[in-house]
Amino acid sequence: MARIHSLLAVAGVVVLAGCSAIGSGDPAPSASAGTVTLVTHDSFALSDGLLDAFEEESGLTVELVQPGDGGALVNQLVLTKDAPLGDLVFGIDNAFASRAVDEGVVAPTEAQDAFEGALVPVDYGDVCINVDHAWFTAQGLAEPVTLEDLTEPEYKDLLVVPNAVTSSPGLSFLLATVGAFGEDGWVDYWTALKANGVKVADGWSDAYFTDFSGGGGGGPRPIVLSYASSPPSTVPEGGTEPTTGALLDTCFRQTEYAGVLEGAANPDGARQLLDFLLSDTVQDDIPVSMYMYPVSETATLPEEWTAFAPLADEPFEVAPDDISKNREAWLALWSETVIG
């Protein structure tokens, strides 16, 4: 018996050896004119076949490098700027855009709407407070509307937000409060939120799926920090309306940029790939595959987005330079105030 098992195991090892990663003869990527490397965040995705179509059309081979999210992505680009990780970067958001430009990570461009003449906006979205309609209906409680409402006693212990230090929507919400209450007022606001029982979860998924009552995980809290585009995915099967909604007076706008990396081996390829990201083929796909809004005005939005995921008319704003200058200090102050 034992011998048979050993034999099987040995046979298994031999079969596996045939397909080991080293043995499978992967051609080493080269920086030849035919390859363009896109450095992007973990959430980058396009529907099946789109990149293939681009490769076929342009004759380029696209390599992806996804070294992390938000700050981790930008900081790796800063550290490797003498030997860049690729040709084009996509996914630097407005919280980190200034650092990328100041550190000289991206090459200048002539595009009209480029941020500081280097980073081209590709998509955007609103980070907003979401509420569980079903919960509030069942409790017979009026839903909050503004950021101030969240400090009212009737909403005590109902809000959960992701950590501003470890999560990029969390940082966006911190920036929303800075935009709303000013540099002098946001700390007081968070003190009031804390007194009103705000819960801080590590990341967005943790907050939305574990703590939030409307995210499918059946958590205890009916108010969560999420995206303006979250409600459409809570339309129940057979239903016509989502069970959650976004509060459009509580939003911060996140813009995601792309730019050709300084020192890129294939800057021409990078520019072609950038044009492709801005083409309506990709722009139409962005809501479906990345849950963001396309920057192109000629792109079409999915039906449920036009119905259930409107953007804020006047999202809160903080100048990128201010973010760049104060981000670390704000985060330290936020930690001190909220985490203790």
């Binding site: 973990d42 959430s43 999210d69 990341g203 967005w204 998924s205 939305y208 799926f209 995210g215 499918g216 999420s226 995206y227 585009s229 979250s230 995915s233 849950y291």
Partner: peptide, 13 residues
Amino acid sequence: IFRLIGRPGPESY
């Protein structure tokens, strides 16, 4: 798994 869990949408989760 890490990428899926970080994405919005109950299907990914």
